[in-house]
């Protein structure tokens, strides 16, 4: 008796190739969309608009976050998320969803901390986010 295993192997390897081709290799990468107007004058300053909330990312190892103004000061991105969510949806609810949030990183601030800050602002529900610079 001869088992016809050749066709079986053919099909199994074809299936294997199919799954290899469709599988995603490496870590899953995701993105934070950020649209910056090309011309600086495209979205010129609107005098009627409320001043933006400036979140500063410093180069300090501890307590690397600071919010300009008389707001509760967060020590990390988790506390920033809590503060921003409270500002947007809390009892005081001082900031609208499209209130301008400017992230102002120190030149020596770690990029990982900058992205964590951006993530916290997005998670808090704000939609008008930018970087404070000459951009």
């Amino acid at each position: 008796m001869v088992l016809a295993v050749v066709s079986l192997i053919d099909v199994v390897f074809l299936l294997l190739l199919y799954f290899l081709c469709t599988a995603k290799f490496g870590t899953s990468e995701e993105v934070f969309p950020l649209e910056i107007p090309a011309a600086a004058s495209a979205e010129g300053s609107n005098p009627a608009a409320a001043p933006p909330l400036v979140v500063r990312v410093t180069d300090a190892a501890q307590g690397w976050l600071r919010i300009d103004g008389d707001w509760p000061q967060p020590r990390n991105e988790q506390e920033l998320l809590t503060v921003l969510q409270d500002l947007r949806t809390g009892d005081s609810s001082m900031l609208a969803i499209d209130h301008s949030i400017l992230i102002a990183p120190h030149p020596h601030a770690a990029w990982g901390n900058v992205v964590s800050t951006y993530n916290a602002v997005v998670r808090a529900g704000f939609t008008n986010i930018g970087f404070e610079s000459s951009l």
């Binding site: 990468e29 649209e35 107007p37 090309a38």
Partner: peptide, 25 residues
């Protein structure tokens, strides 16, 4: 790098630079 992207969008006569910051979850 971000400034170069914005400047390039401006030179290419685009209204905005469509930048996306890549991170892992």
């Amino acid at each position: 790098v971000i400034e170069a992207a914005v400047r390039a969008a401006e030179l290419a006569h685009l209204p905005a630079a469509r930048i996306r910051l890549v991170a892992t979850r």
